[in-house]
Amino acid sequence: MKWIFIACFLVSNVLYSQKIYWREDVKLNWSNFKSKVNNQRGANVVAYTNCGWTYSYVKSSNPKAPIKIEIQTLFNEDKSWKDVKRINDYVLLHEQKHFDAAEVYARKLRKEIAEKIKTSSDFDKYFKVIYNRNLKEYQDFQRTYDRETRNGMLEEKQSEYNRIIAEELENYKSYKSS
């Protein structure tokens, strides 16, 4: 039996950068933001969170064999930036919610994969489409989140998104990473 292991890094081309994997009991802190470069091109940017997912799978050459797919949410320390003169706890909460939103979409992806991909053949037919659709929805959500909260500066909108993200984490809690 031929086993294939592939890891795809959604947001990082650097294999050896420092990463934090999402866990409920671990929250970001400012020391996690290690990039020296503001790659967001804006004087009004206080911080930038670089996060997303990794996935790996083990599959057989037998198209009817079961497949194992693992999705993990990660934060890239070396690509996440902060303006040390303007950071505060409120901004950190906004950045944490970016990371939490990545976990929400990882759970949605895990759910759809669990429902639709059982075999190596299913993986070949459906994975790319499911993954790419979920990725687009995730990216759209992140852009909308920043736009509607004005990068966290609109407190009422930020509170609304804090609630939405918390509810979604709860709604998909059975799809937490094991």
Results as ranks from 00 to 15, higher is better:
147 R>L: 14
10 L>S: 14
110 R>Q: 05
16 Y>E: 09
151 N>Q: 10
107 R>V: 06
96 Q>I: 06
174 S>K: 12
77 E>I: 04
139 Q>W: 12
38 N>K: 06
6 I>H: 13
91 V>I: 10
71 I>R: 03
162 N>A: 10
117 I>Q: 01
140 D>E: 13
106 A>P: 01
174 S>T: 12
23 R>I: 03
145 Y>N: 11
125 K>Y: 02
152 G>C: 04
127 F>S: 05
28 L>I: 11
33 F>T: 13
50 N>C: 00
175 Y>G: 09
21 Y>E: 11
163 R>K: 15
90 Y>F: 12
142 Q>R: 02
11 V>K: 15
55 Y>N: 08
68 K>V: 03
129 V>Y: 04
88 N>M: 00
171 N>I: 09
133 R>I: 09
145 Y>E: 15
1 M>G: 11
20 I>R: 04
8 C>G: 14
57 Y>E: 12
36 K>Q: 06
8 C>D: 11
42 G>Y: 08
94 H>D: 00
59 K>C: 03
15 L>H: 09
42 G>F: 09
12 S>T: 01
83 D>G: 00
126 Y>M: 02
130 I>N: 10
15 L>A: 12
90 Y>S: 15
68 K>P: 02
47 A>F: 00
36 K>F: 03
83 D>P: 04
101 A>S: 11
3 W>Y: 13
51 C>F: 04
29 N>W: 13
47 A>Q: 00
140 D>R: 15
45 V>H: 04
24 E>G: 15
45 V>Y: 09
85 K>N: 12
28 L>G: 08
110 R>D: 03
49 T>Q: 02
136 K>I: 15
51 C>Y: 01
163 R>E: 14
95 E>I: 00
166 A>T: 15
72 Q>C: 07
71 I>K: 01
69 I>Y: 04
152 G>M: 05
165 I>M: 07
56 S>I: 08
62 N>R: 02
45 V>L: 06
154 L>E: 07
9 F>R: 08
144 T>L: 10
45 V>F: 08
23 R>A: 08
168 E>Q: 12
46 V>L: 09
159 S>Q: 14
64 K>G: 02
103 E>Y: 04
94 H>K: 02
56 S>R: 08
123 F>V: 05
78 D>W: 02
107 R>G: 03
152 G>S: 05
162 N>S: 12
166 A>C: 13
115 E>H: 01
97 K>H: 10
14 V>L: 06
142 Q>C: 02
126 Y>H: 04
67 I>Q: 03
137 E>K: 07
88 N>E: 05
116 K>C: 06
118 K>Q: 03
33 F>E: 14
114 A>C: 09
